[in-house]
């Protein structure tokens, strides 16, 4: 029997529930979108926030009483989608410092990054930005102390064992290791998002 979750109030109009994994967060968010009278339900990597209209505080709190954390997502079976990355140089200005921090050669980093099968865990931040897991424990890199005001669209960053792809031009706090031509967000397409949670990904060095 999964344990009950205790909501934290992280704003006057937002509750948050802590879970263990991105899969649990995605599953719980999907359930809450059905049962909670919320304005918005947003999953993080290990939590779910429920923003509500101020007049609905009590109804939302009641709806949160009975939810539990369970991963109901099914592992992706489709073959991994391939994403080409041009690593380092102007396209990945932080690759050298990331590799220094990890005590790895850039070749070893690229080999490791391209050999693994990664998994899309979450879309968030800005339209189409994808949080992709698959880096090993020892590849944990912190975010930049100050976010960059301008990160070009297609930039690929790493942080806390995740690979992130900036779908749009904009500010960003992840160290950048490369750039892809893949279009993660096409506003006018029937399917605007190239990647969805659960999808598997392989990176290829360009």
């Amino acid at each position: 029997m999964p344990a009950r979750l205790i909501p934290t109030r992280i704003a006057d109009d937002v509750f948050e529930l802590q879970v263990r994994t991105p899969g649990e967060a995605q599953s719980l968010a999907a359930v809450l979108r059905e049962v909670a009278p919320a304005e918005d339900v947003v999953a993080g990597l290990d939590r779910v926030a429920i923003r509500f209209h101020p007049s609905r505080a009590h109804q939302v709190e009641r709806a949160l009483r009975d939810v539990t954390a369970e991963n109901k997502t099914t592992p992706g079976t489709a073959p991994p989608i391939e994403i080409g990355i041009s690593y380092g140089g102007e396209n990945g200005p932080d690759l050298t410092s990331v590799c220094e921090a990890l005590n790895l050669s850039t070749d070893a980093f690229i080999a490791s990054h391209t050999q693994r099968v990664h998994t899309v865990e979450m879309i968030g931040f800005t339209p189409g930005f994808s949080y992709i897991s698959g880096l090993p424990e020892e590849f944990s890199v912190p975010r930049l102390a100050s976010p960059r005001p301008r990160v070009p669209a297609g930039s690929v960053g790493v942080s806390t064992r995740f690979t992130g792809i900036y779908a749009l031009h904009g500010p960003g706090g992840w160290p950048l290791i490369g750039k892809t031509d893949a279009k993660l967000f096409r506003a006018n397409d029937k399917n605007p998002f190239l990647l969805t949670p659960g999808q598997r990904v392989k990176f290829r060095a360009l």
Partner: peptide, 21 residues
């Protein structure tokens, strides 16, 4: 430690990056 897992933010959220601003 700069290793926090990405979490939901909204208009009104005040974040504090390691720069301290």
């Amino acid at each position: 430690d700069g290793q926090m897992k990405s979490a939901p933010v909204f208009p009104g959220t005040i974040q504090c990056p390691p720069s301290g601003t």
